[in-house]
Simulated assay, not measured.
Amino acid sequence: MTNSERSNLEPLAQQAAMLEAVQQLVAVVAKLRSPDGGCPWDLAQTPESLIPYVIEEAYETVEAIQSGDPVAIREELGDLLLQVVLQAQIASDANQFNLTEVAQGISEKLIRRHPHVFSTVTVETMDDVYRNWEQIKAIEKGEDPNIAPPLSKKLSRYARSLPPLMAGMKISRKAAEVGFEWESIDGVWAKFQEELTEFKEALATTDKTHQEAELGDLLFTVINLARWYDLDPSAALQGTNQRFIQRLEQMEAVADRSLSDYSLEQLEQLWQQAKARLRGEG
């Protein structure tokens, strides 16, 4: 066998192994969902009950990617793939659709939305790709690609489909693009002070709905501040969460009893010590 023949066989062997592995996963999930000897937990699941797991696995996949650890990335991608296969199996059990249709649908969409790769359309820049993509999406939805859809329709999609912080940033940016924007950062800070005052006033009442509304307004203004300073609020909050846990770990490492047995003053002292140690390690 020549080197050329061997190199042609290797991709085919890899493809066969990949398809076999996917088929095995599908068979495993089908067995878990089988009324005859399946797993009671898997049988009890619905598309809605699995939503928290879909979100959790997506975030854990992101964390693994950020870590740069190939082993962790591979494992988390597997967990995320399981959620796709499990959702498709539940739908198949209900005679709605199956994994084959899911894969075919996304393949057809990718081919349709990349005419510069799979057809004769020519593009020069990424902006050309984006414009073509948006026009094709509009046609798919029965819309006129030459008429921009109402901004509110686009923003509603972000609010429905994205985590709140991410949606807030998207909504803020898109609104700014059409001119719904402060003239300077001073205006954003003034709005922040206004919303902070209104939130404090709401807290003086007993109306929870009003309190949450004012808290939402305040948080949205903070998101706008982040946008003006070119900061990522999701990454910022994630970093704060991680630092809080790291400091708590440091506190527990030196504590000689449960943290609940310490006074507030003692906990504050442990907290400051933990911060100092972490700064030294940094």
Score class of each variant (00 low, 15 high):
L43N: 12
A44P: 10
Q45W: 04
L50F: 04
I51F: 11
I51S: 06
V54R: 08
E57K: 10
E63R: 04
A64L: 09
I65S: 04
I65T: 14
Q66C: 15
Q66A: 05
S67N: 11
A72Y: 08
E76A: 09
L77W: 03
G78Q: 06
L81S: 01
Q83M: 15
Q83A: 10
L86R: 03
L86T: 04
Q87V: 00
Q87K: 13
A88Y: 07
S92D: 09
Q96V: 13
E101R: 05
S107K: 12
K109I: 08
L110E: 08
L110A: 06
I111M: 03
R112Q: 03
R113I: 12
R113N: 01
H116Q: 14
H116W: 13
V117D: 09
F118Q: 07
F118D: 07
S119A: 14
T120D: 15
T122D: 13
V123W: 01
E124C: 10
M126E: 14
M126R: 15
D128N: 11
R131K: 15
I136P: 01
A138D: 05
I139N: 00
E140N: 02
K141V: 05
E143M: 08
D144E: 02
D144Y: 05
D144P: 02
P145W: 03
N146F: 08
L151G: 06
K153N: 11
K154T: 10
L155Q: 07
